[in-house]
Every structure is written in C-alpha cells, then in structure tokens.
C-alpha cells in the first residue's frame, strides 16, 4: 500500500519536489580578454605621450594590415598575437628608418565562458624576446592582454 502516514513530512517532500533550482547566472559572450597587444609611445625626455606614422606594420604568419598610413599613432591598439603559437614577430616600417621588429613571447590558455560562446584565448606573461633600435627603451606595463588595459608595452622615443 502506497500512502503517506506522516502528512506533514510528505507535504514538505511534495512541495520540494516542485522546486526547480535554476539560479545559474545568464552569461553573455563578452570577455575581458582578447588577442590584441597594445603599444604606447612616449617621449623619452619629457615622459609625455608621443606619436609615430608608419608606412607598414606586418606580422609573421598573416597578410593583414594593422595600420592606416595617413595616421599618427600614439597607441597601436590592435596588434593581434598569433594564438596558434607562443610567439609573434611584428615588423614596423617607418620613413627614414630601416625596418624595425619586435618579437613577443607569451603563454596562452583557453577559457570557456558559456556553453553557447566560443572559447576565449587568454594571453598572459607577455615578454619581449628580441627588439631593434626603435624598441630599445621599453617597459612592460601589463603582462596580461585585457580589454581594460590602456596599453601593455610602453616604448620611449628619443
């Protein structure tokens, strides 16, 4: 015979059986992490922001252009690091200079924000492996690539 003699506890059990625990937060797919390195230029003497005009900026492994040749840049904020590798080489061409290059080393890890969102690559521990004259005087400001950071590398120009 199937019956509840103890109606009080049976009642609680029935009520609780209808309880649906759905407290999981709803995620959007926006992440604070991205693959873009930001380089800011400063005057070595005054310490104030400076700017440069580039003829060409390229990266090993892609034909994409990362600059507008008509523009003076105080901050290069869209230099994509190669998430296939742990190193990216950028080459900068400026009028009156030989081609300048910088090799950035880094670590990466994949993060899943939500089941409906593409995995995000988190790039951290960035360091400069090699550099030419233009980048002779530089400082790493933030080792993690984060949308909220104004820049990751400070380059001081003579």
């Amino acid at each position: 015979m199937f019956c509840f003699k103890n109606r009080f506890y049976g009642g609680i059990l029935l009520i609780m059986s209808y309880l649906i625990v759905s407290c999981e937060p709803i995620n959007d797919c926006n992440s604070e992490y991205n693959q873009f390195l930001k380089i800011a230029f400063f005057n070595k003497t005054t310490g104030e922001a400076d700017s440069l005009a580039f003829e060409k900026i390229s990266a090993l492994g892609t034909d994409s252009a990362f600059h507008n040749s008509d523009k003076q840049y105080a901050i290069l904020d869209s230099l994509p690091l190669n998430t296939n590798l742990n190193s990216t080489t950028f080459t900068f061409e400026l009028e009156g200079f030989t081609a300048q290059s910088i090799i950035i080393n880094y670590k990466k890890s994949f993060t899943i924000i939500d089941e409906s969102c593409s995995p995000v690559v988190q790039i951290y521990d960035i360091s400069v492996a090699e550099k030419t004259d233009l980048f002779d005087s530089l400082e790493i400001a933030h080792t993690l690539l984060n949308k909220n950071n104004a820049y990751n590398i400070k380059v001081y120009l003579d």
Partner: peptide
C-alpha cells in the same frame, strides 16, 4: 577541448 578555432588574422587553429 578539440576542434578548429577560427582566427581572423592567422587562419584556422
């Protein structure tokens, strides 16, 4: 995690 990730700049990963 396995598969192909699309990278706009450096191609499929």
């Amino acid at each position: 995690l396995k598969g192909v990730r699309l990278d706009t700049y450096y191609g499929d990963q």
